[in-house]
Simulated scan of single mutants.
Amino acid sequence: MLLIYTGNGKGKTSACVGQTLRALGQDMHVAFGQFMKKDGQAGEQRMLSRLLGDGFRAGGKGFLRKEEDRPAHREAALAMFDWGMRQLEDVDMLVLDETLYALGCGILEETEVRALVDKARERGVHLVLSGRGLPEWLAAEADLITEMGEVKHPWQQGVTATKGIEY
């Protein structure tokens, strides 16, 4: 199955982590990668690393803020993409957090994501993707789409990111 967690609301990564725990609870072999997030940046990374060992990788450079950083982001995205493609050989489920963000800002290409989806289907691997900006072509491919909608968030009152909540 192709599962997608998208939308402007908070909770996409948390849903991916929950999906990972559910699969692990059924003795499935899971790999979890993060496209944009740097290693050691978010609380879930420490726990996923403990649970998954080499089956976890945070390979991002952070979110793309400056155009001159694009080549480094593209290189990191390609390394994560290659890692993910290799994981499809040995897992029951592959979770790739922030794939849609990487796709939307152009550091991943449509052809690459299509190849990932095709290989996962060929191998019978559940593929879980997340991020904002779900393109129509990928929505048409998905078996399950959950859209997170922001109703209220502390940032609207000027509260900065909170440890254990946003990271």
Results as ranks from 00 to 15, higher is better:
residue 48 L to S: 11
residue 2 L to S: 05
residue 23 A to S: 13
residue 82 D to F: 00
residue 72 A to P: 00
residue 73 H to K: 04
residue 51 L to N: 05
residue 97 D to E: 08
residue 94 L to T: 01
residue 43 G to H: 09
residue 67 E to W: 08
residue 17 V to R: 04
residue 131 G to F: 05
residue 6 T to M: 02
residue 4 I to F: 01
residue 137 W to A: 14
residue 62 G to P: 06
residue 41 Q to W: 12
residue 40 G to F: 04
residue 139 A to E: 12
residue 66 K to M: 14
residue 6 T to H: 00
residue 26 Q to W: 04
residue 37 K to A: 05
residue 128 V to A: 01
residue 86 R to M: 03
residue 28 M to F: 07
residue 115 A to L: 06
residue 80 M to Y: 01
residue 150 E to H: 00
residue 69 D to P: 07
residue 66 K to D: 14
residue 64 L to A: 10
residue 10 K to M: 05
residue 93 M to E: 04
residue 102 A to G: 08
residue 82 D to Q: 12
residue 105 C to L: 09
residue 84 G to V: 11
residue 24 L to H: 01
residue 161 A to S: 11
residue 133 G to I: 15
residue 126 H to D: 11
residue 162 T to Q: 14
residue 123 R to Y: 09
residue 65 R to D: 07
residue 30 V to Q: 01
residue 12 K to I: 03
residue 161 A to V: 06
residue 65 R to H: 13
residue 154 P to V: 12
residue 43 G to E: 07
residue 78 L to T: 13
residue 47 M to Q: 11
residue 65 R to P: 00
residue 8 N to H: 05
residue 137 W to I: 12
residue 71 P to E: 09
residue 39 D to M: 10
residue 53 G to C: 04
residue 117 V to I: 15
residue 163 K to L: 07
residue 13 T to R: 07
residue 24 L to V: 08
residue 22 R to H: 02
residue 91 V to R: 07
residue 141 E to L: 08
residue 22 R to F: 02
residue 147 E to L: 05
residue 4 I to A: 04
residue 30 V to C: 06
residue 147 E to H: 11
residue 19 Q to A: 15
residue 161 A to Q: 04
residue 76 A to F: 03
residue 131 G to Y: 05
residue 13 T to S: 12
residue 152 K to A: 03
residue 2 L to A: 06
residue 122 E to V: 06
residue 94 L to S: 09
residue 116 L to W: 03
